[in-house]
């Protein structure tokens, strides 16, 4: 196992898949000559050339649609949209074309396109560069949504996404590209459906995804050391479809659930996980499930205000202590 940064893991997956299949291409703003805003395609332009590593104009809906059309004919595009905030502009092509074409053609045509895009609140980027959009993508039939929480997942999910015959949206995080972690030395394909147990526990389940997995793990440490509470952490790396079995199994074991999301609460991952708990294992519960979510405001520029919007490990600890009365 090699230690590798998140961006290096993404880059390695690109490189291997492009070597494996000459029809794999990547495209996006500044990904070629400039090497990518987050270095995820660094060096690939020199290795594979301008035809396969494509610097696009700033036309998100246009180049996403172009990728979808190329995918119709067997090309496997990996599209980088520099920020999920810009992905709003590409929703027409992603939702109306990529996600629906298999169904509305009666299975004749499919759009195996991968769209990677970082979101989340970083460093005072303001309302239009800090959105967390997973809630929007995960409600669209025909589109798979995954969100890696570490370099291993970033590598393995991208590898599988490129080969899968469905369109896949990969939600990354602007603050996580320099995170280090172990990645298998050999090729590694991660399932696009499911969840992972990031930490075992018996008293409460903390559900997280992407960056909030790390808040959950930090909270679980504090809860164990200071309060004698053993929290289980479930990493919901697949947001569409959500892992109903994994959610049911963990809640049936701990009987308590806290869902931790960076996004604001309405119509989000938390509300969906709560609905699944109700449907799958309501009578296993010893306490009403709780969401730890962002405040429902556009992200403010001011640093103190920005911090006040987004939850952290302490908020998770407080929610668990309240639930358990400790």
């Amino acid at each position: 196992m090699a230690q590798m940064m998140f961006w290096e893991a993404v880059r390695r997956a690109h490189d291997e898949e492009m070597t494996n299949d000459p029809l794999v291409i990547c495209m996006g703003e500044d990904i070629g000559v400039a090497g990518g805003t987050y270095k995820a395609t660094n060096g690939l332009f020199a290795k594979y050339g301008a035809e396969r590593v494509i610097d696009t104009p700033i036309s998100e809906n246009g180049f996403t649609g172009l990728a979808v059309g190329a995918a119709f004919l067997g090309v496997r595009p990996i599209v980088e949209i520099m920020s999920v905030n810009f992905a709003w502009l590409a929703l027409d092509q992603l939702f109306n074309s990529a996600a629906k074409v298999r169904y509305m053609s009666g299975g004749q045509l499919t759009a195996p396109v991968v769209v990677r895009s970082p979101g989340g609140t970083a460093h005072q980027l303001g309302a239009q560069h800090s959105a967390r959009m997973e809630k929007v993508f995960m409600g669209i039939a025909g589109l798979r949504v995954v969100t890696p929480s570490n370099p291993r997942q970033a590598y393995g999910l991208l590898k599988s996404a490129v080969r899968c015959n469905d369109p896949v949206f990969i939600n990354e995080h602007e603050l996580m590209y320099n995170m280090k972690g172990e990645v298998p030395d050999g090729e590694y394909f991660m399932p696009l459906e499911g969840s992972e147990v990031a930490r075992e526990g018996r008293d409460v389940t903390l559900f997280g995804y992407n960056i909030s997995v790390h808040w959950c793990l930090a909270a679980a440490d504090i809860l164990a050391k200071q309060f004698g509470i053993e929290a289980e952490v479930i990493d919901l790396y697949s947001l569409s479809p959500l892992d109903r079995d994994g959610i049911r199994k963990s809640v049936s074991k701990t009987h308590r659930a806290v869902i931790v999301e960076e996004a604001e609460a309405p119509v989000g991952v938390g509300s969906e996980v709560m609905a699944i708990i109700n449907e799958e294992c309501f009578f296993e519960l010893d306490a009403a499930p709780v969401r730890v979510s962002a405040e429902n405001v556009p992200i403010p520029y001011n640093h103190t205000l920005e911090k006040a919007v987004i939850p952290d490990a302490n908020d998770v600890v407080a929610a668990v202590r309240k639930m358990l009365g400790k």
């Binding site: 029809l23 035809e51 246009g62 172009l66 190329a70 119709f72 004919l73 092509q93 109306n96």
Partner: peptide, 24 residues
């Protein structure tokens, strides 16, 4: 390759098919 119901939606899809033809 289909009829699409969002006005203007096929413009980039056609460009993408052309990109695939060019590559192949």
């Amino acid at each position: 390759m289909g009829g699409y119901a969002l006005v203007g939606g096929p413009f980039p899809l056609a460009a993408g098919m052309a990109k695939a033809i060019q590559m192949k």
